[in-house]
């Protein structure tokens, strides 16, 4: 019996082996490398790489650009995640409820899923080009003044949020939709018999029944948006005046453009720790909720 069990587990582990090897090589190993690199410093003048322990991390504490990037990353996440979650719920509801325009909504909401974030970014950069971009012509036609968009420290972040949400909301909507489909119709029918209105059934039935799905979306969305990079890399380069300089981009700039690998890798490890704290807090919330 034990032998039989061992044989089965060998086969089971051999099936897991390729996937585990991939995780080890492409996920775990880079994390180890990044952490190792963050403990070294390259001296430009001697050309040597020296072990500096946690000095790169200590430097980060005194680095105002780093703290600005932490703040920008947190600000972006505080704004973008609730926006994406609420819109994804509304979109999911519009597709789930039976009404005449359901097919049109379904068609429109699924379009962003077929377009890559890079292509989306290019479209949005054309629409919101400062000066004579498409949006300025539209605004002007409606009697509004010309807007600086990506040239404005107060507007650029919102457009980045728009780009990421245009695609993100459609993606998260799929999970909302799956969650909505899992709520038994009988509950709504019973509520209807009891005279419960639409708003009340949404608040007291739909939202509680969706809570697990929504927590999953929130965790995944925060992970994705903490590492948001493409629109910033392709359009703003962290500007204007560092208003979109998220931690991911600051780390990329420090290590890949300036060649200061140790400092850049310390930022990546810090981002990883920050993200782990946020996720741990959410799992705690998830557990308490259960």
């Amino acid at each position: 019996m034990i032998k039989q069990k061992q044989k089965i587990s060998i086969l089971a582990y051999s099936f897991l082996l390729p996937a585990l090897a991939m995780i080890l090589i492409f996920k775990l190993y880079p994390i180890i490398l990044v952490t190792k690199e963050s403990l070294f410093k390259v001296s430009y003048l001697s050309g040597t790489k020296v072990f500096v322990g946690i000095n790169n991390y200590m430097d980060l504490f005194c680095d105002s650009s780093f703290w600005n990037s932490v703040w920008v990353t947190l600000k972006l996440n505080l704004l973008i995640n609730p926006v994406q979650l609420v819109i994804a719920i509304i979109m999911g509801m519009l597709i789930n409820i039976n009404h005449k325009g359901k097919m049109i909504y379904r068609f429109l909401f699924f379009i962003p899923l077929g377009v890559s974030l890079a292509v989306t970014t290019i479209y949005w950069s054309i629409i919101f080009r400062p000066g004579n971009g498409v949006m300025n012509y539209l605004l002007n036609g409606l009697g509004f003044p010309t807007q600086p968009f990506f040239n404005s420290a107060s507007q650029a972040m919102w457009i980045i949020i728009g780009i990421a949400s245009w695609k993100g909301c459609s993606f998260w909507m799929l999970f909302v939709l799956a969650g909505l489909k899992n709520i038994p119709k009988e509950i709504y029918e019973a509520a209807e018999v009891e005279g419960v209105g639409s708003l009340s059934s949404f608040i007291f039935i739909t939202l509680p029944m969706l809570s697990k799905t929504l927590l999953f979306i929130l965790v995944s969305d925060i992970c994705a948006n903490f590492m948001l990079f493409i629109p910033i890399f392709m359009i703003t380069h962290g500007g204007p005046d560092s208003s979109t300089n998220v931690l991911m981009y600051q780390a990329y700039r420090t290590s890949m453009i300036n060649g200061d690998m140790g400092h850049g890798m310390a930022m990546i490890v810090s981002l990883m720790i920050l993200l782990s704290i946020v996720i741990a807090a959410q799992f705690k919330l998830f557990k308490d909720n259960e």
Partner: peptide, 9 residues
Amino acid sequence: EVPGSFIPG
């Protein structure tokens, strides 16, 4: 000067 010229591409 062209304000939109800072956008890469």
